[in-house]
Design a protein around this nucleic acid. Sequence first.
RNA 1: GUGCCCGUAGCGAAGCUGGAUAUCGCGUCAGACUCCGACUCUGAAGACCGUGGGUUCGAAUCCCGCCGGGCACGCCA
Length: 570
Amino acid sequence: MDFKLAVANEILTALGATFGEVEITAPDIAAALEIPPDTAMGDYAVPCFKLSKALRKSPVMIADQLAGAIQADFLGKVEAVKGYLNFFIDRATYAEKVITLALSEGEQYGSDGSGVGRTVVLDYSSINIAKRFHIGHLSTTMIGNALYRLHRFFGWNAVGVNHLGDWGTQFGKMIAAYKRWGDHDTVAAGGVDEMVKLYVRFNAEAEQDPALNDEGRAWFKKIEDGDPEALEIFNWFKSVTLKDAERVYDILGVKFDSYAGESFYNDKMQPVIDELKAKGLLKEDNGAQIVDLQDYGMPPALILRSDGATLYITRDLAAARYRRDTYHFDKSLYVVAYQQDLHFRQLFKVLELMGYDWYKNCEHVSFGMVSYEGQALSTRGGHVVYLEDLLNTAIEKARAIIEEKSPDLENKDEVARQVGVGAVVFFDLYNNRIKDIDFQWDRALNFEGETGPYVQYTHARACSVLRKAEGLETAQPDFSALSDPFAQDVVRMIEQFPDVLKAAVNRSEPSMVTRFSVDLAQAFNKFYYENKVMVDEPGVRTARLMLTDCTRQVLKQALYLIGIEAPERM
RNA sequence: GUGCCCGUAGCGAAGCUGGAUAUCGCGUCAGACUCCGACUCUGAAGACCGUGGGUUCGAAUCCCGCCGGGCACGCCA
């Protein structure tokens, strides 16, 4: 039973009985239902101010009259207060319905299956070849991962794309540097770090000897032309970078279905350019080919440089079309920082001008910048935190706490990893994605308060209680044992879980799930403190254990959806 | 200069399809519990919700101006 809808139906009936025909439907009323700021005021409320005009009566009068006309067995009490109609629901029934539903649906609880038969393409993480993974890449990776999991949970066919940054003259420079100073074994052993060293050296020496740059360009031209040697080195660089990145992805539990990056679209741009030309969208400006977007308040989109070379947006146009043709997506998300807001507005606008109505299904999921202790990240300036270092530090810290608090734990290494990584990921997904993050070690490694470890701990605690209850006599649950405010808060959170997930998907906002997990954990901890679960009375005990089980299940699911594991002991 | 985004207690935030007394965490202070597991509970101090207008029965929430900060604005990605 949907409580909101049930309450809404009662109101509708009472409205009809009291004021005659009204043009309003039950779902309308359900949408207008609110949860009062204080549970002492009621469990649901309807503000009657909007009805005031249509009915030509004061809100206070409407509320008063409706209160007198409503009676239903699942409603405890109906009160009219200053134009608000407040409902008190029968709490035992409420708890029973919510818990029974959540437990019967199990791991599917929270999903309405609304994505079945639909496909979403998610572009996230999108690392650059020959660069190390640092904290600036965490948000795109984890937001993308969370959205990927959320969509799958709702039944979507999700395609995760790591749109590799593997195109540009810097790769020609890298090869030139490698040919001059590098050797296979050193790079194979040192990985990305060695490649970065070569690149840094190249740029340093190129300042003395600009001819080196020509050498770099020449190598890049060879890549473009498909020269076997150039391609072999280039592809090898890619595989070394991906191997390095894979290590981090494994720690984070992040996966992709495609690694088609910029170079992949090298031979797919010409048809797009031809099409732009055919549709009369392309025009020359200062030797370059552009799409004029002046009518839309935007600077022009540069499709071809004056030397004929393609640009970023040219590749993204080709990529958008390729994804549409290949995956037939119903939705395409780009999890990219807000610096590129304009780029995506231009991209989507050009798609629209090309006549692709599916441009509407493309969305830029933009997020804030990461700075480090107040300053911009700078790889060159050494002002940077590498992701692997951060994760390892977090894992070590978790390990130390485990040694102190639960030295007898069996799989300490695994749990340390789960908790350490959980802290970092949670930190990243905690705030609205649009907010900038100033990375500070002590905050990212915080395990107390609103943090991943706190939620994980609550989950482990629930597991512990359930373990202790194994083998005890079960009885018909007495749901009236869940009528107190603390248990009710937990029930309410569990009831809201499906709505929270839906909103998180609709708004592409994983932080809603992160927030929810904290709220549920807090509510459960209060409940747990105020009510003893393991009481002698079997009916009461069973009801409280069911609530504990529900909490465990929902916390685990919430954490999973934002990419965090939930150990059963810690 | 133009466009977009952000501005809520000392700090970090939530609340933004308008609704009752603006929540949460960190930190500070005073207590309680210390019973299943780093928890939890009670209370204190701390917010003219950047600012000025407007719309509305009602604005942190919507609209406009201003201030402060960030990002972006043709041949990088």
